[in-house]
Design a protein around this nucleic acid. Sequence first.
DNA 1: CAGTATCCGATGCGATACTG
DNA 2: CAGTATCGCATCGGATACTG
Lengths: 248, 248
Amino acid sequence: MPKRPYGLICPITHACEVLEPRWTIPILTEMWGGATRFNDIRRGVGNMSTALLSRRLKELVEQGLVERIQDPATGQVDYIRTQRAIDLEPVLDAMGKWAQCNIKAKQALKDMNVSNLMWQMRNYIDSEQLPSRQLVFQFRFTDPDLEFSKYWALIRPGSPIEICAAIPDFEIDLFIETNCMSLSSILLSRTTIARELEAGRLFLGGDAMLSRTMDRWFYQRTLEDRSEILQLSDSFFEETEPTVRTAR
Amino acid sequence: MPKRPYGLICPITHACEVLEPRWTIPILTEMWGGATRFNDIRRGVGNMSTALLSRRLKELVEQGLVERIQDPATGQVDYIRTQRAIDLEPVLDAMGKWAQCNIKAKQALKDMNVSNLMWQMRNYIDSEQLPSRQLVFQFRFTDPDLEFSKYWALIRPGSPIEICAAIPDFEIDLFIETNCMSLSSILLSRTTIARELEAGRLFLGGDAMLSRTMDRWFYQRTLEDRSEILQLSDSFFEETEPTVRTAR
DNA sequence: CAGTATCCGATGCGATACTG
DNA sequence: CAGTATCGCATCGGATACTG
């Protein structure tokens, strides 16, 4: 690790020295979520540079937090957490809970951009809760000044979800209109689909069954306990202007 | 905060954005320990630059983690944590526990320097457990290449402990000979006074009563639960060369 | 896919000096 | 005591190009 030492007799500070360098915790979080491959981790934390990820992983291996395992046959490389990193889960968990209760959505999400959001979306659509046929969802964002305001998600049973910025040659099953903040807030469980619909920040069109069951196939998988958060969310989701409903 | 955003839909990452900038967590830890004054915090975290502490405190106030309170009469300024910062205690606690169990003393303490260590010592001597008269302790460090190898602690009932690098004009009540790593490890509860004595890394001379009761007046106050740590400490305190006993 | 090599720019940070 | 102001260096980090 870079580990610029503080030089204190304080365990908390010693932990900081290990965990402070940028990307360290997001990487460990992503691996907690199951990622083991270089590029999976990389995209998972939002396309960080290969050079930097490479360095960080080396440092984590050096610290004994991560093990690099190469399959001699295929050459495939996997990174797995050691017990030392697994023992960090209570720390990460506490951090997540704190953030959910103490950082306003407006601040936490103000730097989300739509294409990044759409990439992350792949992890929030649960194909298993959807009919097992090909589906196309169209997302339209009402935020101003977007490079692309429409994105499409292709869901095929058995394959990873594809996100594209060009309209696919298939019939669209579900139309989703919203804004970046509202959609992010749903994924963070800072609000609910129902509330966003009612507030006019979310509009659903097309297949009625898909619309009505959205809260079953669209959710933040890693969040342990939504209910606790939802009780607090009213005060932490600051109202934004309702999305103006416009023609497609 | 500097808060270079990661732009992810991930609460843990949101917490990182707030907590990552250097010194943020040590400052909050120091305030958890009771420090409220600018220079107390500054010295507590090891003499960071005034400019930087000033900036960090401003950022923390901005984030709603700290409140700045100035007494209109005296002009005295106090910094106190808001509830939002108090809610971080579980995070800090988990970090401390993790570090105690997962970072070897050798790594955690390799950047301690003696004068820094001696400054921190002030917090680890509990005057209330000592006879209420003036006491002078002499610390002699056996580490090689020290600018000063001897320090003195002056303990007077009712006043803060003084640390000096020049011999005071008083009789010395207790002689302590050790090395930097060993003493730090005792303070971190990575080892015990008894074990260091036995291993020859710690020598006590002078007042026999003070020697025998050392574990009562010399300890890490903030550590909640020593016993848990002590069970693990054998594997985490890597042996160093025993201190060679030399004439004073 | 899993990286390495290189390069450049921003800025975080520390040191010092100074103020009310 | 509680800061502000300035300055310059280091290094961290991001982008890009290239490799087996």
